[in-house]
Every structure is written in structure tokens, then in C-alpha cells.
Design a protein around this nucleic acid. Structure first.
Lengths: 192, 192
DNA sequence: CGATTTAGGGTACGGTTCGTACCGTACCCT
DNA sequence: AGGGTACGGTACGAACCGTACCCTAAATCG
């Protein structure tokens, strides 16, 4: 009968999250179906609903699994190149399916502030940490003013890029836009 | 029987759009249901699907119907107050229930690039024009550098506020956030 | 003024998906 | 060995989308 042993606990949970992440990558959040996730994970909806209360929660949890690859902040010795490298990594990089997924999640989470908070915190494209890192180095080199080291200021370029994704509905933005964001906004904003 | 004459054409279309806009304002895009719109408009889904191919198209059309009021840029004689006034007008949405609807649509219209394009073109909280207007006046007063008069730079505050709406899922942002956006980002960016 | 065309009203239906409930069974622990 | 827990399978109700069908009011035209 080729019966494998019945999975339990963490092993099964991991399989579910992996299946959900695959579905997200293939069909995006609108295509994330509980039944298909269950089938792909070789289990049933029961095991899913015992862990997450609804589809949105599963989606957010699975997104965690996908977007695990943190951006490692570049260190070119030049703030402009660092910022461009970060934007390009988000834009072209492997996280471009992640952008689509994130967009779908933002639409689907609805009125659940807790899930939105999770998305916003850890979320999206590495969060504020890499930006604060490159800013710290720039301040040390005298290329940025110390007052710029706040999350709001540091992530302005990220927010502008995200805005391009959201309003234009694209998964990739023209490189000239990245240059424009850096040269017209980011450097004048944080520069000394 | 108090039978009113059967509505047709533009009259019925107007009633449907009005009902859809009301539903959008109350429950947001996820709560926009064809059957409820039909019931609220005193008709049935038939009349709706004869005019719009699907739910998303109806949502965008309903937004169009109520989004006429443009923001008139304030003129306080002070760039900081002008910018705050614009942000507050968008935030409170008192100028238009349309703003709230737009937020719901932006978060709710998922993977339909055509509709997203329509929203982005015609809409978006007044667009860059009022921001360019207050910047022009500020430049004339010596409160802003001339190079800041580009759409990308001028609308940074708007984009940051929109980002708050989208990532936090709120319909209203705390006023302190507006002040932070203006003082930490906008003024340092455009100031001379 | 009567006949024809058009468009709205009412309703039912298929398909899909969410989320829940029930029941039998394999696994873990003591 | 025995019990509690968690998994597998399945069926079900509810909501919603989009479509189909028939009937009727209204506009249009001969």
C-alpha cells in the first residue's frame, strides 16, 4: 500500500506552509485556495483550519516563508550606489513575485489590523533595516545628515517604489524610475 | 399598488451607480456585492451586467460617478501649512466620501491592470496639480528650491500618506503622522 | 393606433470557494 | 495496553459570481 507514516505537528505545518507558498508563487493570492493547498500538501482543510483561522492568515504566514530571503545591504562605499542596489534588488530581483503576492495580500487581508501589522513589519522587501544600515555607513562617511536616520526618512525610496508597483500594477519598473527616485528624492532628502 | 413607472436608460444607470457608491462607502470594495447593489438600486443583477462586465468594472464606474470634486490648493502663505492642509484634506476625507472609496478600491482591485490604470489616471486624490501649485508659490517666496517642482518630488508627501493607508489598512491616519511626514520628509526635501 | 423592438423585473441555476461539522483512525505518551 | 490528541476523508451550509430564461413595461415605428 506504500503507506507513509502520518505526519504530525511541525512536519505537517511545514508542508502546508510550503504548499501555500508554492500556490502563492504560481497563482498569487487570489489563486490561493484552501482546498488546493490541502491537496498539494497531501492533507485536508481540517489540518489547515486547526492552525490558521482563515485564508488571509494562512496567506500571511506563507508569505513569511517565501520572503524569508532578507536583503543583505550592499556596501559600495557610496550612498547613491547602495540605494540603487537596494532598489534594483527589490525591482528585478527574485522578490518580484513577492511584490505581486504582497499586493494581493494587502487586498485580501481586509480589516484585520493584526495581519496588516505583520505584513508591514517584516514585510515587504526587507523592511527598514537595510536602509538604516546603508544610511549609518553614509553618515559615518559624511554623505548623509545624522537626522536622516529615522525609519520614515530611511524608507522613502522603498515607499516610492512600492507606490509604483501598486498604482501601475506592474511587477517590474523601468530602471530610469529607480534612478529618478534616488537622484531627485532620496539623495536630496538625506544628503548633508 | 403604488407602482412607479419603470426606470430605463440613464435614470436607471444613475441609480445603480449611486447604490454601488453607497455600498462602497459603507463596506468597501470587498463588501461590494452585485446582489446588494441591485437590491439597493431597486432592480436586479440583469440590469447591472448589461452595463458592466464584472464587479470590478462596476466599482471603478461608481467611483468615477462620485469623484468629481478636485482639491483646491490652500494658500496660507506658508509652505508647511499648505502641505499640512492638503494632507489633512485627504486624510479626513471630509472633502469627499470619494477618497474613502478610492482607498478601498486601490486596496481591493487586485490583479486587473486595466482598472488600476483607470484609477491611477483620473484619480488619486487630486493628483500632482495642487502640490505643484503650492510648491510654485513657495518657490516664489523663497521657501523651496526651484528644482523641487517635479511631479515626483512634489507628490512625495501624498505617496507617503497613501502608503500609510495601504499598509495599515486604515481610513484615517493620526494627525501626528501627517506632521511627521511634512517635517521629517517634505520640508527637508523641497526646502532651500 | 396597433405591432414590433428594446430593455427592465423576477427568478432560478451552475460553479466556486470559504468555513464548519462529523466520524473513523493512526500516532504519541504514560 | 489504553487513552487522548491530531490527522484523513468527506459532506454540508452559506455566500457570491456570472449566466440563462421567461415575462412584461416602455419606447419606437409602420
Amino acid at each position: 500500500m506504500a503507506e507513509k507514516t502520518r505526519r504530525r505537528g511541525a512536519e505537517l505545518e511545514d508542508a502546508i506552509l510550503r504548499a501555500a507558498a508554492d500556490e502563492l508563487a504560481e497563482a498569487g493570492y487570489p489563486g490561493l485556495t484552501m482546498e488546493r493547498v490541502a491537496q498539494r500538501a497531501g492533507t485536508n482543510k481540517n489540518a489547515i483550519y486547526r492552525r490558521w483561522p482563515n485564508r488571509a492568515a494562512l496567506g500571511v504566514a506563507a508569505y513569511r516563508h517565501v520572503a524569508e530571503d532578507r536583503l543583505t545591504p550592499p556596501d559600495t562605499g557610496n550612498l547613491r550606489d547602495d540605494a540603487l542596489a537596494l532598489l534594483r534588488a527589490i525591482n528585478c530581483g527574485q522578490s518580484s513575485p513577492a511584490a505581486r503576492i504582497l499586493r494581493g495580500l494587502l487586498t485580501g487581508v481586509g480589516d484585520e489590523p493584526e495581519l496588516r501589522q505583520q505584513l508591514h513589519d517584516q514585510a515587504a522587501e526587507g523592511g527598514p533595516k537595510p536602509w538604516l544600515t546603508i544610511l549609518d555607513r553614509a553618515v559615518a562617511r559624511g554623505q548623509a545628515r545624522p537626522g536622516a536616520r529615522t525609519p520614515r526618512v530611511a524608507t522613502v525610496a522603498l515607499v516610492l517604489l512600492r507606490n509604483e508597483f501598486l498604482t501601475r500594477g506592474l511587477t517590474t519598473v523601468d530602471d530610469a524610475v529607480l534612478v529618478e527616485i534616488v537622484d531627485e528624492v532620496y539623495l536630496p532628502l538625506v544628503g548633508a
